[in-house]
């Protein structure tokens, strides 16, 4: 599914990622944890193709294709979805119109005809029910005036609509109360299949009570310094990140 080899990334000449290696197979859930400033969000942005970042070395192969050669919209249509840490507001653009444009771009990419209005609305209704999002949110402009929790739910709703092969959820749990956290996690779990994979980026272990990862990585100072099963998350919860810092001489 995804293979990252020796990935080095800089922003404004400052190196953030210093040689990441990561292999993700279909159906797997990987959690990437780590203290603030470790480079977690940078990794998510680079996967999605944000051009603020400069890849100085290494490669990312997604489903046999060189991801770094692709424009962000092409990566999306190939099946990469980024759940934003801070979803963006687009005033005046209805969620319906936005999603319809996006879904039909995905369909075009697959050689399918655009959905008719009624088929699209049916799809929306089904997905809204699946992720428990309120119609009053999807009737509004994209993320405009949404609370933090509403924005995150809207990300999961969009993920449901687009059915990605690889979902990268960047700090999806930040700013969520326990109910919203449960709803968001349930959404992610329901969307899980044997074919698609998920990268869950989080600071806290809390989310991983709901979304059970197959593998947990600790990202520290631009490198993955530890990889283990889900028990690693619990250990981090208990001991914090200090021991990681000490082990790595910082």
């Amino acid at each position: 599914m995804l293979s990252i080899k020796n990935l080095h990334v800089s922003i404004d000449g400052k190196e953030i990622l210093k040689g990441i290696n990561l292999e993700i197979k279909p159906g797997e859930v990987h959690a990437i944890m780590g203290p603030n400033g470790a480079g977690k969000s940078t990794l998510a942005s680079v996967l999605a193709g944000r051009d603020l970042y400069e890849v100085t070395e290494g490669e990312i192969i997604f489903q046999g294709k060189n991801l770094l050669d692709m424009a962000p919209e092409d990566r999306a249509k190939e099946g990469i979805f980024l759940g934003f840490q801070y979803p963006i507001e687009i005033p005046g653009v209805s969620t319906v119109n936005f999603m319809k444009t996006a879904v039909n771009e995905h369909r075009k990419h697959k050689g399918l005809d655009p959905l008719t209005a009624s088929d699209f609305l049916r799809l929306m209704r089904d997905k809204k029910a699946l992720v428990e999002i309120d119609s009053k949110l999807t009737n509004r402009s994209v993320n405009e005036g949404f609370s933090g929790g509403e924005k995150k739910k809207n990300e999961i709703f969009q993920m449901a609509m687009l059915e990605p092969k690889l979902a990268v959820l960047d700090e999806t749990d930040s700013g969520l109360d326990i109910d919203a956290l449960r709803i968001v996690a349930n959404g992610v779990n329901k969307l899980k299949t044997a074919e698609n994979s998920t990268i869950v980026i989080t600071h806290y272990q809390r989310l991983l009570d709901y979304i059970i990862p197959d593998v947990v990585h600790v990202l520290f100072d631009g490198r993955i310094v530890k990889t283990a099963g889900k028990e690693l998350a619990l250990e981090l919860e208990e001991k914090g990140y200090d021991w990681i810092k000490e082990e790595n001489g910082k």
Partner: peptide, 15 residues
């Protein structure tokens, strides 16, 4: 940010 958000959903910059 807005454009990138749209791009990430598969929408070209023009659109």
């Amino acid at each position: 940010d807005q454009i990138f958000y749209c791009n990430q959903r598969g929408i070209s910059t023009e659109d």
